[in-house]
Amino acid sequence: MKVNKQKKHRKTVTFYTSCFGFRKPFKILCDGTFVHHLLKFKITPADEALANILNATVKLFTTRCVLEELKRLGPETLETLEAARQLIVARCEHERCEHPLKCFKEVIGESNSQHFFVASQDTEQREQLRQIPGVPLIFGLRNALHLEPPSAFQREYIKNSEEARSHMTEKEYQLFKNKFTTTLVGDEATNPPDEDNDLGDHKTIDLQPVKKTIVARKQMGIEDKPQFKRKKAKGPNPLSCKKKQKRSLENQASGQLKEKKEGDKRSRKRKRSRKRPNSTETTS
């Protein structure tokens, strides 16, 4: 399976698991056309092939109506009938054999509460099942199996359901309204209307010290807006203008002694005498 195909299938599976609550192992409801396609193109074992698409373990189901339909088609579908009998039979309450589409609709219900994947090669059947929320569809093309991406109806259904969750239902609104009215009645019982006037007086008293503080603040000369002072030109650094101090006599004398000692040391240095070879020695 190609990488792009794997990514698409993974996105589709995550959409149904996060939005509709599908869980592993996934249940796949197969009709006779899909089982026949698997045998025709030798896509066996079927559970492993479907597990590779969904990247999870699977359980294959069918219904009694599908088995009865395969029996009626005669010996041509005998091999398909034997393969379909090996699948798990989902419960359908039909006394007589019904069309697979009608049977699947009743098994799935209005919202696919049992979380079935539907595998079918019938295009009309897939078209009608797309109108049921939460029904992922699987079909085959030659020797490859494909998982259909979510239809526009599926995405619109999820969008509307999320918006509905963010608002109150009528029942919740009535509960909230009743609770609010009971709290108001309780407050009126505890606080009679005479006490409300007293509460108003208390409010005016509480506001008076706030006004006083504002007046006092203005008297002190403090303003709300900050004022920035301009920087004035400053004079030179006083340390740089300081006069040089004269050396004391003691320092001068000590400096002269140091100079004399250094001169004596320089004069006392021994000069190394080098002997020159005599002319006689050179001639000999």
Rank of each mutant, 00 (worst) to 15 (best):
V3Q: 12
Q6N: 09
Q6K: 12
T14E: 15
F15D: 03
Y16F: 14
Y16P: 00
T17A: 13
F22E: 05
K24E: 14
K27V: 00
I28R: 01
L29W: 03
T33N: 14
T33Y: 13
H37Q: 12
I43K: 11
A46I: 05
I53T: 08
N55S: 07
T57V: 08
K59A: 07
K59L: 02
F61W: 13
T62E: 04
T63M: 07
C65D: 15
V66P: 12
K71F: 10
G74I: 01
G74K: 05
P75V: 02
T77Q: 13
E79T: 06
E82A: 14
R85A: 03
A90W: 05
H94A: 04
H99V: 04
C103V: 03
E106Y: 10
I108E: 01
I108V: 05
I108P: 05
E110L: 05
S111E: 02
S120I: 06
S120P: 04
S120L: 04
Q121L: 05
E124R: 08
Q125A: 15
R126Q: 10
R130C: 07
I138V: 09
I138D: 05
F139C: 08
L145Q: 04
Q154G: 04
I158G: 01
K159Y: 04
K159D: 05
K159Q: 10
S161C: 02
A164T: 01
M168K: 13
M168C: 08
T169A: 01
L175W: 09
K177A: 10
G186S: 15
T190G: 07
P192N: 00
E195C: 03
D196H: 10
H202R: 15
K203I: 11
K211H: 12
V215P: 04
V215D: 15
R217I: 06
M220G: 13
K229N: 08
A233T: 09
A233Y: 09
S248W: 00
S248F: 00
A253S: 10
Q256R: 14
K258I: 08
E259C: 07
K261G: 08
S267L: 09
S267T: 06
R268A: 14
R270L: 07
S273Y: 08
R274Y: 12
R276T: 11
P277S: 11
N278D: 09
T280C: 09
